[in-house]
Design a protein around this nucleic acid. Sequence first.
DNA 1: AGCACGCCGACT
DNA 2: GTCGGCGTGCTC
Length: 805
Amino acid sequence: MANNQRYAQVIVDVPTMQVNHPFDYIIPSQWANFVTPGMRVQVPFGVREVLGFVVEVSDESNIDRELKSISAVLDDEPVLTSEMLQLGKELATQLFTFQILCFQTMIPNLLKVDYTKVFVPLPTISWEHQQQFFSSQKEVSWDAANQNQQLATLMQLKSAGEVAVEYRLKDKKKIKKAYWIQPLLDYEELQEVESQLRPQATKQQDLVAVLMDLDGENISAKQLKASFNLSMQTIRSGERKGWLTVFEKEEKRDPYADLVTETVEPKTLFPEQQQAFNRILPDIHTHRHEVFLLQGVTGSGKTEVYLQLIQAARDLDKTALLLVPEIGLTPQMVNQLKGRFGNDVAVLHSQLTAGERFDEWRKLKHGEAHIAVGARSSIFAPLDNLGIIIIDEEHETTYKQNNAPRYHAREVAKWRGNYHQCPVVLGSATPSLETRARAQNGVYERLTLTKRTNHHELPDVQIVDMREEFKHKNYYQFSRKLRDAITETLARHEQVALMLNRRGYANYIQCMDCGHVFQCPNCDVSLTRHNEDKTLKCHYCGHTEALPQFCPECRGHHLQSFGTGTEKVEQEIMELFPEANVVRMDNDTTRRKGSHQKILNKVANHEADILLGTQMIAKGLDFPNITLVGIINADTSLYLPNFRASEQTFQLITQMSGRAGRGDLPGQVFVQTFNPEHYALQFAKAHDYEKFYAYEMRYRKLNHYSPYVFTIRLTVSHFDEKTGLRTAFKIRRLLQEADVPQTRILGPSQSAIARINNQYYFQVLYHYRNRHAIQPILETIKNKAQEWDRDHIHVMMDVEPMSFM
DNA sequence: AGCACGCCGACT
DNA sequence: GTCGGCGTGCTC
């Protein structure tokens, strides 16, 4: 073999255990010096063609067989850096998933490919068949053949050797192009042209006038059309007459082009902020990786610290990465960043279109922007030379992805911080117990902000015992105290935010004659009543049916609704406070793009007096005129089947309380509950995170939960209940036989919702202390799972799960 | 994941 | 005798 032959090691786009390793390919000589690690390539794999990521190139191959060649190179530059290649490999191991899934997660969706199959004629094809299938086209797509009932015939022709199947993959990547105009004539020439135009040719006169104005500068056709009311036709005719040329120019979509921000100068830091800043700053200068917990009460000015740290990194020409829970909900954060750093900021979040996301990503990749801000997946932002990574609201569960690869952005942040040797800042008013405990042990350094920058007290939190309301025959969702408070607040022309953790109108409906409860046919849950569109909906699989008029079992007409959702509370508000304007914000009212902003604008402009919503309203809202916050039912999050239920309830109440009294007006908070004595509520009332932390840690220690032990959740699902359970027991036995010291096996147990979409779910929890000790047995199980998969038995492995549903 | 290869039941 | 069912194993 020629000794100048180059080889590529490629991870192929086939998410399965057996091929979760690099495959060797010959790099055709014309690309030998061009193909580099991180590029996407098309490679033959078996009989088909698939996408692959080059992870390495070399001068030799250890494969003892004839190698195939790369069929196409899809990129002119790597889409993944060597950092990402390394990270992807490690993540796959740690999370028990496939490298290809990790790589796919790191790049924008537009860089994924579509697969198609086509039939093409071979020279041997008969004249009749050529006419029948290929007279008007060079090829027939598989899908079209399938729809036209031609598939069987074409497959026969394939075996007869008359046609072949070709595998194609199509890049979804689309670079947006725009038309631009370049004037060709100078001022005198234009004057000449103008004098010879017919008086009726008004559009052309306009065009010439604009060209004179431009003084030789280029202008985009879009601007020309918009500002001077000229059509493309006029422009084209100008081109024909030789006044100008039209050319295409690559354009990056800018989703925030219309955003008007005032330039905001850095604020003077308060002593506590300055102290925290001073502690972190040297690490940026000296390339030191350290993790900081910035624990600051709501309103203590964490954001200003972030902004100045980012500035410090930029001053050293380093880049910065800021993660926020869900950016669509925190326009304030984007405004502040754009206000301070302008176009140096790229924003990445789920509400952007695929094209917009791709372009924001490219700005970072090409160094046109150096600051990335975004939700979870932005932790993979293509930034080099990172100077600082900040995770705001680090306790948020949205940082954990709940489908494969089930990574936690906080852990990825630490990995990248170590890679770049830069500080990582975890900010929160209510840190996760894991983070707070690590700060206790000295693994992280804890910095505290105890004072609010507006010097106001934290709002007064009252806990209302709803059992008393029941005793006094008050069957409304509003306690008398909360009702009075709302009345008074509205009278003062201030605003109210109410949170209820369940959408829809009623939780379930039951026939009062025979007791029948309307349930989802696919899942083991009751259907939720939605009055708005007069339906019953399953919130798990999406099943929808019309609101029934009578009971299907006994034909009875006495159907009663139980439980409360946002729709019902909205109705009660209209009944109790008829003069108030209500806006509702939940999954049902925010589904359309931009509807978030619309609702929030209504609140900001005081077109709404009461904002009612699910927990999505707890995050990041900053409306100075909201002085009253009500949590309608704090219990819904308290008794979830999750050992973090108390922690999450405490965080939610604290966060929601923080929405009250952001401005100069004092705030008050009402928490309605049937468990007024619960410690999570009591500590939230007292605004005492530290006491809650100490108390909760004792509970976790006693019950052997995180952060004292680590957890892996193994979930088995199958359409047959018995098979699912049997497999779950097999997993238990495998874990038992491995007999790793300092581990504990819980289950199998039925998942909180036993059946979703006709699949039965069982889970085994594996608690452990030593990560390396458990790796082999879990690898074994992963391989077994591959075999079980053939029988449609699915096994999910979730490292440090946040949800147990 | 796909796809081919290969070994057993009901049909021209 | 063959067509086609889907169990098994492989893909550089």
